[in-house]
Design a protein around this nucleic acid. Sequence first.
DNA 1: ACCCTTGCGTTCATATTGGTCCCACCCAAC
DNA 2: GTTGGGTGGGACCAATATGAACGCAAGGGT
Lengths: 235, 235
Amino acid sequence: MNTEPPPIRVLVVEDEPIAADAHAVYLQRIGGFSLAGTAADGQSALRALQQAAEAGQPIDLILLDMNLPDLHGLDIARCIRSGGLAVDIIAITAVRDLKVVRAAISSGVVQYLIKPFTYAMFAEKLANYRDFRQQLASPTARASQNDVDLALASLRAPTAAPLPKRLSESTLTAVVVLLKSHAGPISASEVMDRLGISRVTARRYLEYLADQQTVRRTARYGTPGRPENEYLWRG
Amino acid sequence: MNTEPPPIRVLVVEDEPIAADAHAVYLQRIGGFSLAGTAADGQSALRALQQAAEAGQPIDLILLDMNLPDLHGLDIARCIRSGGLAVDIIAITAVRDLKVVRAAISSGVVQYLIKPFTYAMFAEKLANYRDFRQQLASPTARASQNDVDLALASLRAPTAAPLPKRLSESTLTAVVVLLKSHAGPISASEVMDRLGISRVTARRYLEYLADQQTVRRTARYGTPGRPENEYLWRG
DNA sequence: ACCCTTGCGTTCATATTGGTCCCACCCAAC
DNA sequence: GTTGGGTGGGACCAATATGAACGCAAGGGT
């Protein structure tokens, strides 16, 4: 029906190897991204950007730490901008200074993630960015005001609670396991049958996962009655 | 409770005097902003920025047109970034090219307003920016993740009006995607076949889009039978 | 000119699911 | 033992696509 968009090429810029690895691992767990490289300081980050652009495989996104041995993250952002590279930046840093936050946003940082963070927080920010990008990647090269607003809205969507009420960890994992093991899309009724839980409960968890962008929600047509939602795990 | 925040100093960059005046007038009608100057081309805009910064009254926000006689708006944004000035940019332009939109957001444009626009739209974007700024101007110099998220969320445009009855978001999206990807005009029957939905449903959504002026409706004659409506996506 | 054919527009009842409210049950804390 | 929070599930109403039936506007033959 529709073609899968190409993965978003990500450069991780982080001087602590442990943290850099963690970011890379987290990244792999989210669909739609591919790790294009890692840099431990500002100079090598800029070099990697340049090389990737010259190789015809430009970086799309940088996960940028602010505290680096040679350059400050804001300086790196400035260098990137003056180079005119079309790369987006998500700041991932322990710096909580409001001035830095403001300056980062002025410099075109699209998300600002404060360390330490949970995987859920990380995944949410990245998923927001992925949706934002997909909305602006439409084949029609022109945008309406509504298109732009919707794209920005998905980029800046507010935070979701750690785990909303009415949801339990065990049931959630059961649903996730079922979704992962199931090849095609699956409906709430089918989850009900497979797991022996009620339709209401199945729907509650599936909707949560859909809101979290970890499953894709589509509608099944062709039969009378209200269309049935189907949920598909995103690899 | 707390003192009134100082007004946000705005520089209007627009080559057409009429439009520049309009922006200035609109700006006066919104609280919390003060017009710091007007520039008709890129060079004078950069000069004005520099002078304001040296005079100790830096510009906070630029309303930036993309099409200027000497420099492109994106170039101006790039110059500003490489200068390291902490100034935010709202793009106000007739350019609807998605590449430009993406590049603008990468360059740190916080809002993108497509001309022509209504005063309500203009006021909404500016008010959003004002709220965003106020949230990051808190006397506490440190931010939590929640603070940052809330501030970014206020930059986000509120969700569009709810859909009329009998229409669902997902189905509408499917129809829109199909229309966008289809070059020529398309009939209700063809939408039925392509999406696997019924003719009645396809027509309901196409009629809605036609009423919203987002698709153009024409009639096809020449074949036996009642003339068939065709719908064409408007770029 | 008239009528028949043809295929879409329109309306309505129906089927089936989504969404919400509220209660039963479980478990932990006191 | 009692109380309180929280999860799961039944019941109900709302929502939405479908299918059939009818109406309508054009083409084409007599």
